[in-house]
Design a protein around this nucleic acid. Structure first.
Lengths: 72, 72
DNA sequence: AACACCACGCAGCTAAACTACGGGTTCAGC
DNA sequence: GCTGAACCCGTAGTTTAGCTGCGTGGTGTT
């Protein structure tokens, strides 16, 4: 379930950067297929991978999990 | 590098809950050795693992990465 | 028609997540 | 100065899942 939300979040961030999955994959140095898996929540990147994702998306790692309740 | 900080953070949270590594492992349903590896930054838990860690530590997943610069 | 973007299944490799055992250190208390 | 609790750390092993590649097919747009 976490993976699904994480994927959604990543897809949203990618789109907000106006990147296609292919361009995103190139910047990340990984395959397009993997991006697809991650965004659909089938797979989740490793912690090392999260670091790369965050870097390309220009956010902090913890922001990738910022879908959790926006309390306060 | 991320793993090291993550491990530190997890160790801190565990101690603040007054748990030994052994008690922590039991609650998590994993081995003590793995806890040690994670806290020292040798290994990082999978995303599914992060979910469990967060649950036991009673924090959100993103709080596990809340060591990043407290800027602004 | 053709192309861009993406979902999705299948099959595979390999790195790393995770376990088990055993020895060694530090520190507190008795 | 022994004992036990809590932890580090090395080695070696199993299994999972992170990640790739290829191929198909769908939708929308020009």
């Amino acid at each position: 379930m976490l993976q699904k939300k994480l994927g959604q979040r990543i897809a949203d961030l990618r789109r907000s950067m106006k990147l296609t999955q292919e361009q995103f994959a190139e910047k990340l140095g990984c395959s397009v297929e993997f991006i697809s898996l991650v965004e659909r929540g089938v797979n989740a990147p490793s912690v090392a991978g999260l670091e790369k994702f965050a870097k390309v998306l220009k956010v902090e790692v913890r922001d990738l999990f910022a879908f959790e309740e926006r309390r306060r």
